[in-house]
Design a binder for these strands. Structure first.
Length: 1045
RNA sequence: GGGCCCAUAGCUCAACCGGUUAGAGCACCUGACUUAUAAUCGGGAGGUUUCGGGUUCGAUCCCCGAUGGGCCUACCA
């Protein structure tokens, strides 16, 4: 009985599991890191570099969703990689705590319990509500593995933060660009507050009334148009179109475009209808006119100054020229209510019209209505309820072109919170002027000018940085266009809100004179108070919130008792826009200039935008050096990935398939469904299994439809598979664009992750739980030297990628490297690892190299896969049990290898040889495989009766083959030090490199018997059945075993 | 309506800012494997680069237009 030598082979051995069981083990690492103070230890390492990252505060309401989680993963990649690269980087997580959503939640609760609470009490409850969600989200963010100071986050409701917001406001006041004015703003009548641009959403299919209203021209007007009238027309009305009948009572003017062509259209009863020429036909159709009869066309400038009679108020609406008038919709004459529209307001200002808005906070008409409207009983009516009344009344006056009840479906702004349609309403608010000179800045640019200049400066710096291989400025570069457009077009910033939960605008009003005061002195005083006692102080009775005496515009000092406090709070976007000033500026090791802001691309209108404006006032420049944006999480159809959205589409899909089944197209439906990545054959089989054997195709089709689009809650992924797999997904897709998220994509990311994990596992196994020498301590084999050269290239590529935030490239590079190692290097090293004696020089060279590879790769992936990297570290013999963490490592290095380029060439030649080998070997091996399969099917012995498959003649593994390949002398030279080892490195029994063309078979069975232990045919097997190498290895093994026995 | 962006294999991504035959990985088909075995290695098939024009000796790349999708926005009166 020959000895079984397997136990003497040094096969891979490691406790590092093939499957991570991450969902179970991640919490253990988290606990360990927390108890060992890992984060503090990372920051305490002595480094020269510094990188300032600033967390954009998520809103402290509700659970984290895909976007948040992705965002947090990316942020963690940044801070961890910077620390790894030797740039000390802190992560101070923050939360946005003030604002309407929280206040409304609390409000609802209060109303439900029918309580009456004071503003102070209200603020206490809001604070509790925000704190509750901060806790929830903190847990969720920590679970993802994000490293930071979680116990001391920044909260916008902290006293220090509130004080800095006031100081930021002070900078605007110092620049003299804060003013109070009555202007139209987006107003939510339900929440009873003005809304910022960022608080407005849009409903896709909002249905509004659609009315054409006639304003009869006076005699002078008709006279002016006499030459333009169609035959038989003696009176003329200007026709406007609107979807908001409730604003008709506030109509003060009509806008026309001076350069546009207009005509008088002959209407019913011979009445002339003044409309844009381009729209005459459409209007005629709407009015159901039999024929389109128009007079000669003329330019709108002819109309400027004419007057149209308001349908039910005793006043005239003048026709003004305005650029915003279009001829694509409506009538080319625009109903203008300066109190209810931004352009209307602008036109009003230009012509001295008041921002007349007879509508209250609650969306009801006020006593400011005109007599006509009052006579209709509109006062106190809710405006949207009044729409039909106004319409009906206009109809009864004969002022409508069509019968009442016409509707139009269009996009319409709604409140981000309560989803009710918004109105535009002129109110008295605090504004920041975009186009007034900033007095405190040199050259007194306007805020808009400065902001635009900063945008361009960042873009230019970004272009410069790109040349240096780093990312700064707008990343990706189109961020510039994005934010530029917004800053260029935005109106003055309305910063006041009529709510309670926020930072008060510390303005005061003199009770007697009505003068409103908001000065830097006052702001500084209040900031100090807030810093000590928080903004709640504003709502207390304590007089000391205000300075004892307050300076009025004329310079006189008046006692504070004569003033009342402004009840408004500051726009929350102003607060978060001040975060750099509240969080980073006060810290000695951070400062107000932040290296990186990183948020979703929607923040071009949000946080990036408001931070830029605050930065321009406070610092005179942008607060950030780089702004990195990412896209949105979508499903595999490219649609936003949200629960409700997917539900809706699931239903649509089901309906569609049901319809096809009913039409008898079940097979088609199934085939269509199977083309989608969701409905795989496995899924089909699954569905069949679930539904029982008697399943009809119809049922299968329906079942697929149900599963076709699946919502996978993020917390489920994390709880069942581990946070790291989510991180693997985040790094697997391209965050610059929309990121596809589906089971299929997730699985792909997991596969890539497993590839890396298994490669590392193999190398850990090779080390067999014993420390290996360092690469500097042994003479390295040429192939090992090459592995290190390759590692050096990988490291260089990854470092550059990290500096450019190209995390995907880092991961892809590592995965590719692992693949390369697996297929070539590790495969080529197996013989010496398994079969050489434990003390073999060649083997020790491999171990040293693999230890170095594992160690380096663990460090490289640590920012992205912090748990698995630590798992590797725990199982790396040299570090196991020492309580160290991979996260304390710095960027890995490789010892310099002489003539790395020649080695690279040699391996390239080896690869070419390898291709050649496979090309000739594959058909031979394949033939045997085919024969085996055929024999199996036929139930006979494989190879029986066929000489080519005789046991001594066939080749079923490369190691049994001797291959002959042609190779020129030059090519052979390239192989250099690898030439003598070619057969081993290629896993062949033997290789012959011929310089002349080969005649006959290139593949033969390698000569000689195979060694009983290593199965190699080297022609040197002794009488004991072992090759000398194995003989020695067995002796060494036996000696060691004897020693321990 | 406007601004910005995206579209390459069934899927996720490449292709050195115009240059050989558009590359990987996964999935699929297929072979090997007492020595990485829920692993690993080999082979194969799969593309009119969304469509239509244009510039050019040459276009996945530049320009114009269309289609589909995303984010943002508005003065849809």
């Amino acid at each position: 009985m020959p000895r079984d030598y397997k136990e003497t082979c040094l096969l891979p051995k490691t406790a590092f599991p093939m499957k991570g069981d991450l969902f179970k083990r991640e919490p253990q690492w988290l606990a360990r890191w927390e108890s060992s103070g890992l984060y503090a230890r990372i920051l305490a390492r002595p480094v020269d570099g510094r990188f300032v990252f600033h967390d954009g505060p998520p809103y402290a309401n509700g659970h984290m969703h895909y976007g948040h989680i992705l965002n947090n993963a990316l942020k963690d990649f940044v801070t961890r990689s910077r620390n790894l690269l030797g740039e000390r980087t802190r992560f101070i997580p923050g939360w946005d705590c003030h604002g309407l959503p929280i206040e409304l939640n609390v409000d609802r609760e209060v109303k439900r319990k029918k309580e009456h609470v004071s503003p102070t009490e209200m603020r206490v409850r809001c604070r509790d509500e925000a704190a509750k969600w901060v806790d929830v989200q903190r847990t969720e963010r920590k679970r993802l593995g994000v490293l930071g100071t979680w116990e001391t986050p920044y909260l916008t409701m902290n006293q220090g933060f509130e004080a800095q917001v006031i100081r930021a406001l002070k900078a605007f006041v110092a620049n003299d660009i804060v003013y109070r004015g009555k202007k139209p703003v987006q107003w939510c009548w339900h929440c009873r507050t003005a809304l910022a641009e960022a608080e407005v959403e849009y409903a896709d299919a909002h249905v509004s009334p659609s009315i054409y209203v006639k304003f009869a021209l006076d005699a002078a007007g008709v006279e002016a148009l006499r030459a333009k009238l169609p035959d038989g027309v003696t009176r003329v009305s200007a026709v406007i179109w609107t979807t908001t009948p409730w604003t008709i009572p506030a109509n003060l003017a009509i806008a026309v475009h001076p350069a546009l062509d207009y005509v008088v259209l002959k209407g019913a009863d011979g009445e002339g209808l003044l409309v844009a020429a381009a729209l005459a036909e459409a209007v005629a159709k709407s009015a159901k006119l039999d024929a389109v009869v128009v007079g000669p066309s003329f330019k709108g400038e002819l109309l400027v100054g004419l007057q149209g009679r308001h349908p039910f108020e005793a006043r005239w609406s003048t026709l003004f020229g305005a650029d915003h008038v279009e001829s694509s919709a409506g009538t080319g004459l625009v109903h203008t209510a300066p109190g209810h529209g931004r352009d209307d307001y602008k036109l009003g200002v230009a012509h001295g019209l008041e921002a007349y808005a007879p509508v209250g906070d609650d969306g009801r008409y006020t006593g400011e209505l005109g007599d006509g409207a009052k006579a209709m009983g509109l006062e106190g009516q809710f405006i949207f309820d009044a729409n039909p009344a106004v319409e009906q009344h206009l109809h009864s006056l004969g002022a409508l072109l069509q019968p009442p009840g016409q509707k139009v479906t269009h996009k319409y702004p709604i409140c981000w919170r309560c989803k009710n349609p918004l109105i535009t309403r002129a109110t008295t608010q605090w504004f920041i002027a975009m186009d007034e000179p900033m007095r405190a800045l040199p050259g007194t640019p306007t805020l808009r000018q400065r902001a635009l200049a900063e945008i361009d400066r960042l873009a230019a710096d970004g272009a410069r940085a790109e040349g240096e291989g780093v990312a700064r400025g707008w990343v990706p570069s189109w961020g510039r266009e994005r934010i530029r457009g917004m800053i260029e077009g935005r109106p003055d910033w309305c910063i006041s809100r009529q709510r309670i939960w926020g930072v008060p605008i510390p303005a005061v009003q003199h009770k007697a004179t009505g003068e409103v005061v908001l000065t830097t002195e006052l702001l500084e005083h209040v900031a100090k108070v807030f810093a000590e006692r928080g903004a709640d102080a504003w709502y207390s009775d304590d007089p000391s919130v205000l300075p004892a005496e307050i300076r009025c515009a004329d310079g006189t000092l008046r006692p504070r008792e004569e003033f009342s406090r402004d009840p408004s709070i500051i726009d929350v976007w102003f607060e978060s826009g001040s975060s750099f000033y509240a969080v980073c500026e006060p810290e000695a090791d951070l400062g107000a200039k932040v290296d990186l802001y990183l948020e979703g691309s929607d923040q071009h209108r949000g946080w990036f935008h408001s931070s830029l404006l605050v930065g321009c006032a406070v610092l005179g420049e942008a607060p950030y050096r780089a702004v990195l944006t990412h896209g949105f999480v979508c499903d595999d159809q490219g649609r936003p990935y949200s629960k409700s959205d997917i539900r809706r589409r699931q239903e649509a899909r089901r309906d569609e398939i049901t319809a096809r089944v009913n039409k008898g197209e079940a097979l088609d439906a199934v085939l269509t469904a199977m083309k989608s990545t969701w409905a795989t054959p496995e899924k089909l089989a699954d569905a069949k299994k679930r539904l029982g054997k008697k399943t009809s195709l119809d049922d299968v089709a329906l079942a697929i439809a149900q599963d076709d689009i699946e919502f996978i809650p993020p917390e489920k992924i994390i709880a069942e598979q581990g946070a790291e797999l989510f991180r693997a997904w985040a790094v697997f897709v391209d965050y610059e664009n929309d990121m596809p998220y589906s089971r299929a994509v997730l699985n792909q990311a997991i596969d890539a992750y497993r590839r890396v994990r298994n490669t590392l596992r193999f190398m850990l196994g090779a080390l067999r739980e014993e420390p290996a020498p360092l690469v500097t301590e042994v003479a390295l084999e040429p192939i090992d030297q090459w592995a290190l050269v390759r590692l050096g290239e990988v490291l260089a590529k990854c470092e550059k990628a990290y500096r450019q935030y190209a995390f995907r490239e880092v991961f892809a590079t590592v995965v590719e490297f692992c693949q390369d190692l697996s297929a070539l290097y590790l495969d080529a090293s197996k013989d010496r690892l398994y079969n050489d004696a434990s003390d073999s020089v060649r083997r020790r060279s491999a171990l040293a190299t693999m230890q170095h590879l594992v160690r380096s790769l663990a460090a490289v992936i640590a920012p992205i896969l912090p748990f698995s990297a630590e798992d590797v570290w725990d199982h790396l013999p040299a570090f196991a049990g020492k309580g160290d963490s991979v996260h304390l490592e710095f960027w890995p290095t490789v010892p310099s290898i002489e003539d790395g380029a020649a080695l690279g060439k040699a391996v390239q030649r080896l690869r070419a040889l390898r291709d050649g080998v496979f090309a000739v070997l594959e058909p031979v091996v394949q033939a045997w495989g085919v024969e085996k399969q055929a024999a199996k099917k036929a139930g006979r012995e494989p190879g029986a009766g066929d000489a080519t498959f005789a046991p001594g003649a066939r080749i079923d593994h490369a190691r049994d083959a001797a291959v002959t390949l042609e190779l020129s002398a030059a090519e052979r030279d390239e192989l250099g030090p690898l030439a003598p080892q070619a057969a081993e490195l290629l896993g062949l029994g033997a290789i012959e490199l011929a310089t002349a063309p080969v005649a006959g078979d290139r593949v033969r069975v390698a000569p000689g018997p195979a060694c009983d232990r290593c199965w190699r045919r080297r022609g040197d097997v002794g009488a004991d059945g072992l090759c000398p190498r194995c003989r020695h290895a067995v002796d060494v093994f036996d000696r060691a075993a004897g020693a321990t026995a």
